[in-house]
Design a protein around this nucleic acid. Structure first.
Lengths: 130, 130
DNA sequence: TCAAAATATTACTAAGTAGTTGTATATGGA
DNA sequence: TCCATATACAACTACTTAGTAATATTTTGA
């Protein structure tokens, strides 16, 4: 529908999004970051850390995932800079490194909700249910 | 669905990010959306559409991707609601459906840049390069 | 030093997907 | 109607990766 990007109020510069004319080498970094967040299990872990730092056992319990699986995902999240690792005795405590990931997820949630609502309205209009 | 119905005033409520306590079924929608943006080729196409609507041939030329490949990616982007499709004669014109994807990419770019800068500073401190 | 607990790693299988080649389906013009 | 152009689709290969079972590593306490 709307073609050009025009939202002057947003803190991120709308006219210079920086994403255009970027070489694939740079886009690969962005793609890799999105890829880390493109798995349900990792989003579950991120959600589990929303309430604060947790050790691995707590994350396993909260998510219901297997131990080896959680360990692997935590490594991926750590390497991506999304969570930080801190050892405490035999336990290892993980926490969100940058809460902006929650804003990211929220933006997507909002967009998806708006999208679904629009689809529902169009469907209702087609069916004359109004 | 999400906790998005709680704060109608602010677009991104920081206290109620809505991403916590979400069932995997909802997280799957978010994950699928991120997955669409987690491929360099699709980001290339999105970038190509930053300057405005383009037909498939133009996208092929701008991205350097194969025709069948572009067609497949455009289908994925369309199904995800990221681009819209409009036929014009023998050509099909695609355009960005919601410019918020650019804000998303920009947020990730900013975060990655800050992350890399921080790493560089830590490295310099370790090496005493100041 | 030994044992137990917590976490990490390895090896493996199964599932998903990006890219390609070949083909099919329009659409407009001669 | 026939042909050229533009786009979509199908089948295939190669590669990646999520999940799991088994094992290794680390730390604490007795």
């Amino acid at each position: 529908m709307s073609a050009a990007s025009s939202s002057p109020t947003s803190p991120t510069a709308p006219d210079d999004c920086g994403v255009a004319h970027l070489p694939p080498s740079v886009l690969a970094l962005v793609a890799d970051f999105f890829k880390v967040l493109s798995e349900v299990s990792r989003l579950q872990i991120v959600c589990a850390l929303k309430s604060g730092p947790h050790n691995v056992s707590e994350i396993i319990e909260e998510t219901g995932l297997g131990q080896a699986n959680v360990s692997k995902h935590l490594k991926i999240l750590t390497q991506a800079g999304i969570v930080t690792r801190q050892q405490q005795g035999t336990s290892v405590i993980y926490q969100i490194a940058n809460p902006f990931v929650f804003e990211l997820c929220q933006s997507v949630c909002d967009a998806l909700a708006a999208q679904m609502q629009q689809q529902n309205q169009q469907l209702a209009a087609l069916q004359g249910l109004r």
